[in-house]
Amino acid sequence: MDFDERLWALASKVGNQREAIQTEEATKNAFIMPFISTILGYDIFNPLEVVPEFSADVGVKKNEKVDYAIMRDGEVQILIECKKSTEPLKIEHASQLFRYFSVTNARIAVLTNGEVYNFYTDLDAPNKMDDKPFLVLDLSDVDETLLPELRKLTKEVFDLDSVISAAEELKYVGAIKREIASQFKDPDEAFVRLFTSRVYEGRFTQDAKAQFTQLVAKATRQFLNEKVNDRLKTALGASDSAPPAEAAPADSVTSEPVAESDLDRDTEIETTLEELEGYQIVKAISCSEVKPERVAQRDAKSYFAVLLDDNNRKPIARLHFNGKKQKYLGTFDADKVETRHPINGLEEIYLHAETIRGTVNHYMD
């Protein structure tokens, strides 16, 4: 598997197992050590590359240790502090990182709970770890624009200078994107007041605040939907002049072969209306090849599966709609290897109609 494939495989594992992990040690074993080894590419059993329970005696409190130090050429390059997966990350958790950052050669510090990885450096003051991360990797909602920068920290292509030079832009662009997402989801008074002042000449009273809070939230949702629909129209218009879905998009990622027991292991499942609508589209496409009653669905914790004959061994497609931002359609080749296609709306499922029909025909043969 390549870098992206390994990351998606780990993200899937975290999504499936997160609720079962209750301790910090279990989080390290299940999520963080695989991240260090399979994503960053360092040998966790080689003390020349990864030092667990790392300590430095100079200038720090006694008996305090950082969970992992990643070494290159005998020097500390990355410090990693871990918390259990069920615990949200706070800067207060990073006290050891702050102290060790100033007394080692490390330029990168990571605070993680196995699902979210906050990457820090020293942009604000030399040799002093910043209070805010320059990169936030959330395995429950992966921002694919960050992957090229994350790849620069891997053992194979380690390029610290390039990461540091891009860190300031990453820090502020990422923070702005997270703030925009937060405001679109739940606008605060300052955000509401900004737009109200542009369209309303009356006083910003409590009644006006209550009214425009709802209106601003509604307007932002409609604006996003309209932008998505415009992109869909452009994509669908382009598909009229080219054979649909003959090849996967360039930014598709491929997972490992289908794990047949995944659906049976998942619990606490919530089926959404959007998943059911997506299922109906896949079913409609498949019905050109088989009778409708043979196309079944099963929801899992991390994805919604469409199956032939309600058989786990015959997956037609998967709907990965549980992420906070990007949605994916999973299609399968003859070897049952899944390819994830980023989609921005249900209509884009039709772009992969030929692949879906081909999968159904393969099972019929």
Rank of each mutant, 00 (worst) to 15 (best):
D141L: 10
I164W: 00
D131G: 15
E169W: 06
D161T: 13
A166F: 00
V136M: 06
P133S: 10
L137F: 11
A166E: 04
V142R: 01
D141F: 06
D124R: 09
T154V: 06
D138W: 12
M129F: 14
F158Q: 03
L147C: 05
L146H: 07
D122T: 03
S162K: 08
D124P: 13
F158V: 12
V142N: 00
D143H: 05
D122E: 02
R151S: 09
P148N: 05
D141I: 09
K132P: 01
L139S: 02
K128V: 15
L123I: 13
M129N: 11
P126M: 04
T154M: 00
S162F: 03
K128G: 14
S140Q: 01
N127F: 05
D124L: 07
P148I: 12
T154K: 02
D141V: 07
E168S: 14
R151Q: 14
V157D: 04
M129D: 14
L146D: 08
L123T: 09
M129A: 14
L123E: 02
T121E: 04
L135S: 13
L137D: 08
L153M: 00
A166P: 01
E169P: 11
L150W: 07
N127Y: 00
F134S: 04
A125N: 08
P133D: 06
D131K: 15
N127M: 04
K152Y: 00
I164R: 01
K152I: 06
K152L: 11
D124S: 13
S162R: 10
P126Y: 06
D159K: 01
L170S: 02
L146Y: 04
K155L: 02
L160Q: 02
K132V: 13
T145H: 05
N127A: 08
I164S: 05
S162G: 15
L146K: 02
L123R: 08
D143M: 00
A167V: 05
R151C: 04
L150G: 10
D130K: 05
D130I: 10
L135C: 14
N127S: 09
E169L: 11
E169K: 13
L139G: 05
D161I: 10
E169N: 15
S140E: 09
D122H: 01
E156S: 13
D143K: 05
D159N: 11
T154F: 02
R151E: 11
E169S: 14
E149H: 09
L137Y: 08
